[in-house]
């Protein structure tokens, strides 16, 4: 009989994340994959600025803390120095798709052999819930109190669809962690994104549709359902480049 255990890569520390936030799930998936692939001793992660700024407190691997939006540039520097190591970034929607969009696009265009994990929860969590580049039309946030209006605030950015037009990336996928089934799929796709870097020396990005119950003003269960029902209308899950 196998007992459900905490992966060793995940430190025995209580997450600072809010109840119902799915960062914990994604951290665990990343930790499981690193352990399963036996790459803990040769992995270097890059933390963003945002809710996951303290990700290094939870993952027992070498990590660098980047300035806001620059994780892909920092990861590029690490990977060029250490081409045999496994380098990944873990970034939110503000970090990756607003302030860091330039680095996101150009790192993908260069086809840097990195794994980019992109947490899209359609809001700025760390700073109390402002509009993100991925906020849905009509979605209420601290800075779109009347709902995001395309005429005033423009449209949500579909990062996967956009990056899939580039020749540099090898693998671009969007997954969800809104249900047990979705989480199992997310795990499979994240693992593939690491495999592409390790075996094919290629760039891979996985967008993970995630919850922010606190700033969405929802119960955790409703937040999970909202990803599966509302978010996926704007951000369909799937493989965009293979």
């Amino acid at each position: 009989m196998r007992v459900f255990e905490r992966p060793k890569v995940l430190k025995d520390k209580v997450f600072h994340y809010c109840p119902g936030c799915t960062h914990g799930i994604v951290h665990r998936l990343v930790a499981e994959i690193i352990e399963e692939m036996d790459i803990r001793e040769r992995t270097v992660g890059v933390c963003p600025v945002g809710c996951a700024v303290l990700a290094y407190d939870y993952l027992d691997i070498d990590m660098q803390e980047a300035s806001h939006g620059r994780a892909p540039a920092v990861a590029t520097g690490i990977k060029r120095v250490l081409p045999d190591k496994v380098v990944f970034t873990y970034q939110g929607d503000g970090d990756l798709a607003a302030i860091g969009m330039t680095e996101t696009v150009h790192t993908a265009a260069r086809g840097e052999p990195l794994t980019v994990i992109f947490i899209n929860n359609a809001i700025y969590g760390m700073t109390n819930g402002q509009m993100a580049p991925t906020t849905l039309l009509g979605q209420r946030t601290q800075t779109t109190p009347y709902g995001r209006n395309a005429a005033k605030e423009g449209y949500p950015i579909k990062v996967c669809e956009m990056l899939a037009t580039l020749d540099g990336p090898s693998y671009i996928a969007r997954v969800s962690v809104g249900s047990y089934k979705s989480i199992l799929n997310a795990r499979k796709v994240l693992r593939e994104a690491f495999r592409r870097q390790i075996e094919e020396n290629a760039y891979a990005l996985v967008e993970v549709l995630s919850t922010c119950p606190t700033n969405w003003g929802m119960k955790p269960r409703d937040a999970m359902d909202w990803i599966e029902n509302e978010m996926q209308e704007t951000f369909p899950v799937g493989i965009f480049k293979e």
Binding site: V44, V46, Q64, A66, S67, R70, A73, V74, A75, T76, G77, I78, K79, R80, V81, L82, T102, E103, V105, H106, R110
Partner: peptide, 26 residues
């Protein structure tokens, strides 16, 4: 060695950060 023409000064200095953090002369 490695030369990269970065997409901006911001990217360049942060590549320096990553490489320096990985122990390189940069």
């Amino acid at each position: 060695g490695v030369f990269i023409q970065a997409e901006s000064e911001l990217a360049a200095i942060n590549m320096v950060y990553g490489a320096a953090g990985a122990g390189a002369r940069v």
